[in-house]
Amino acid sequence: MNDRCAMTQDRLPDLVTDRLPVGDRPAVQDHLEQCAECRASLAALRLLAAATPVAPAGLEHRIRDAARLALDPADPVGEASGPGASPAAQTGRGRLWARRWVAPAWGLAAAAALVLLLGRGLVSTPEADPDLLAMGGDEIPLFLADDGMVAGAPVLDGLTDEDLALLLEEMER
């Protein structure tokens, strides 16, 4: 195949599907008249074009309905995604928005777990606790230290008697 053939064959799909600009057609047609190999490629492409797969009936509406729901921020997890919703809605916005709402919830849960882990680490780190090191596994069990301290809990040890009394008084209110 020479350069002329390569250039012609590059354009054959556009010729077959009528996408080739009118101004480019004479050059392609001229070459085709002289080149049996390019004509054979044209014939093969024409056969392929005749059997182009088409989307199944209903796919456009299915995607359109789901896309509209995905675009509309209203009703994040409401009736559109409920049991009575259309299949498109159930696979569309309802699911999409459900994911959006679920994701932050998982984020909060993860943050809470992290706080607990950090809190446990503050009062009992594996390095400082030979019992934990002796357990050997990669996973450190989550539990409270003996004194019940958790991250975020008030530390009462440093309070004076007066401050402690004040605090207890406020808690009783």
Binding site: V16, L47, A49, A50, A51, T52, P53, V54, A57
Partner: peptide, 14 residues
């Protein structure tokens, strides 16, 4: 489903 099944005329040479 193919274009040919729908009877869409693609080209006379088909």
């Amino acid at each position: 489903t193919l274009v040919a099944d729908r009877g869409v005329p693609v080209d006379d040479a088909v």
